[in-house]
Design a protein around this nucleic acid. Structure first.
Length: 235
DNA sequence: AAGCCTGTCAACCGCCGAGAT
DNA sequence: AATCTCGGCGGTTGACAGGCT
């Protein structure tokens, strides 16, 4: 039996107060990130370490952009989602200043609906042929798509295979998945994908990008990319 | 004005993989 | 090789706000 990540009793839950935020910020400024398990005690917080990490990453980090998503960010999310499925952290890694949680929420509350309204199935990014959305999708057949060729990633909600995480650094393999589908999806997305280290600060971002570009044979390049149906309709 | 409904988003939960022992 | 710990991820929940009736 797995131990809880920390002692649940005597820990606060729910919304963070300003004081708690300040304690966390102060502590991380002084000591840096890491060792989340011991951080709460060291920082004088009655919080679970995970909670601290989440609060920092999703809300307090100084390099967060916040606010509305720009149009190009939306485009990028849609493209990346077509390619990667619900791997939000990977998608967020391509959007400086955005967090996986933010991207996930934005997808679920805005983009998903948007695609549906346009008659596009947000799960596989194909034109849904006015198929009623809530009708049980024929997953077996829809699995002949992008996402399916990527070994049915988790965004195929109805028939998810066991999750296999930690594949994040193997995503470039997915590129080859696009070649075979001739059934209407943007099969020739032609996306090279490089996994980028999440930006730790804006100051480092450029350096990291340079570094990655230098040290990797592939780099995301949408400039010659065929838009997905979703994106074609967007414009 | 009050109650209900819906959308948004911060936060939590449980699981997994990697690394350490 | 087995077990443990930790950090990270994606799915889900619940509080809140705003719109609608």
């Amino acid at each position: 039996m797995r131990k809880p990540c920390c002692e649940k009793q005597d820990t606060n839950k729910g919304a963070w107060s300003k004081q708690e935020d300040q304690k966390l910020i102060d502590y991380i400024r002084k000591h840096g990130e890491g060792c989340w398990r011991t951080l709460p005690q060291a920082a004088g917080l009655l919080r679970c370490g995970k909670s601290c990490r989440l609060r920092w990453i999703n809300y307090l980090r100084p390099d967060l952009k916040r606010g509305n998503f720009a149009e190009d960010e939306e485009d990028l999310i849609i493209k990346l989602h077509a390619l990667l499925g619900n791997r939000w952290s990977l998608i967020a890694g391509r959007l400086p200043g955005r967090t996986d949680n933010e991207v996930k929420n934005y997808w679920n509350s805005h983009l998903r609906r948007k695609l549906i309204n346009m008659g596009i199935d947000p799960n596989n990014h194909r034109l849904s042929n006015s198929r009623p959305r809530l009708q049980p999708p024929n997953v077996t057949s829809s699995c002949a798509t992008l996402s399916d060729q990527m070994k049915c990633p988790p965004h195929d909600h109805d028939q998810q295979p066991p999750k296999s995480r930690g594949e994040n650094d193997q995503v470039s393999d997915a590129g080859s998945c696009f070649e075979e589908d001739s059934s209407g999806m943007a099969v020739d997305l032609n996306l090279d994908l490089t996994v980028s280290i999440p930006f730790t600060s804006l100051a480092n971002a450029e350096e990291e990008q340079k570094h990655i570009a230098c040290n990797s044979s592939t780099e995301l390049d949408f400039s010659t990319t065929t838009p997905t149906p979703a994106l074609l309709l967007f414009r």
